[in-house]
Amino acid sequence: MQLKKRPRRLRKTALHRRMIQETHLTLDDLIYPLFVCPGSSVKQAIASMPGQYRFSVDLLVEECQQVRDLGIPAVVLFGLPEKKDLVGSDAYSETGIIQTAIRAVKKHVSDLIIIADLCFCEYTSHGHCGIIADGDVGNDQTLELVYKTAVSQAAAGADMIGPSGMMDGAVGVIRKALDENDLSDRAIMAYAAKYASSYYGPFREAADSGAQFGDRSTYQMDVHNADEALREVALDIEEGADIVMVKPALAYLDILYRVKQTFHMPTAAYNVSGEYAMIKAAAANGWLNERNIVLETLTAIKRAGADMILTYFAKDAANYLQEC
């Protein structure tokens, strides 16, 4: 049979396939999330996220050194305070767990970008992402704490602030806070399209951030909506976001693609805890090849439009990529 078009000609060998490869996953695409807790010499396993741990500040520094040595350019830090209260005061304290961790990492691992998560669910006794008013999170009351927290995190040495609470106007408040306090060189990675997703379950254990009542559906996005995501992203860009994010990643690749194609902004995607846990569980049961599925998953996220990927697989992926 005479065929004019034979796409298989360019799949004949690994070298052929490499020559026409369209999407390239690299170390520079990876951001590693880390959890920091009180104490010393603490490395506490997270049961629902095999291979992930809560670190005390001293061991967090060692972990960040390993991350840097692998060639991963950035980490995002989540804090577990010693004490919680109604307003999450440890989130903006100069001696808070995140501020302490940032200073320690910057002192010993200067050549690593530190992104500070800015949210209150880990710090509040009720587990919600801000101040409770009339039975729900009060948006504008919470913004007052967002201002204070952004300044304290950046003053401690954070290179980038990552507001994840989905409060209306948060990015604008952070930009104002940084500019007014001689911290205008610090970037904002906005969790611009963050959905009220069931994929966050293992994170709630890791960060001890489960809500004591209700849920987060009044401030995180409805999983049914797509156009709304574009409006949210547009608002964050207008308010001064340097990077916009879609979270979660895998079930929202359509959103990620639309965001990138619409705005052409530096775009991040968060390969979240539930996505991580599902792959880990399947691999532990021998149902799939973990190395191959991790690389395929991260490549798919990049192909959909992500310039950077927050993923608990970052260290594993770095090792896999160096083997290639």
Rank of each mutant, 00 (worst) to 15 (best):
residue 108 H to Q: 11
residue 113 I to N: 02
residue 209 S to Y: 08
residue 205 E to T: 05
residue 222 D to F: 08
residue 161 I to D: 01
residue 175 R to I: 01
residue 55 F to A: 02
residue 203 F to S: 05
residue 170 A to D: 14
residue 47 A to V: 13
residue 250 L to H: 03
residue 176 K to S: 15
residue 290 E to M: 14
residue 124 T to A: 05
residue 89 S to C: 00
residue 208 D to C: 12
residue 12 K to Y: 13
residue 235 L to G: 02
residue 157 G to N: 04
residue 212 Q to F: 09
residue 25 L to P: 14
residue 65 Q to Y: 08
residue 282 A to Q: 14
residue 23 T to I: 15
residue 220 Q to R: 07
residue 103 R to C: 00
residue 136 D to K: 11
residue 28 D to H: 14
residue 198 S to R: 14
residue 120 F to M: 04
residue 73 P to T: 08
residue 316 D to I: 14
residue 3 L to P: 00
residue 214 G to E: 07
residue 288 L to T: 12
residue 309 I to L: 10
residue 44 Q to M: 13
residue 135 G to I: 04
residue 4 K to L: 15
residue 181 N to Q: 08
residue 277 A to F: 02
residue 268 A to D: 02
residue 81 P to D: 00
residue 39 G to L: 05
residue 133 A to Y: 09
residue 260 K to V: 03
residue 255 I to V: 15
residue 211 A to Q: 12
residue 113 I to D: 01
residue 236 D to H: 10
residue 280 K to D: 12
residue 46 I to F: 09
residue 254 D to F: 06
residue 194 K to V: 06
residue 305 G to L: 00
residue 300 A to K: 09
residue 223 V to N: 12
residue 10 L to Q: 15
residue 63 E to M: 11
residue 30 L to A: 05
residue 238 E to D: 12
residue 219 Y to E: 03
residue 211 A to N: 10
residue 225 N to P: 04
residue 294 V to A: 04
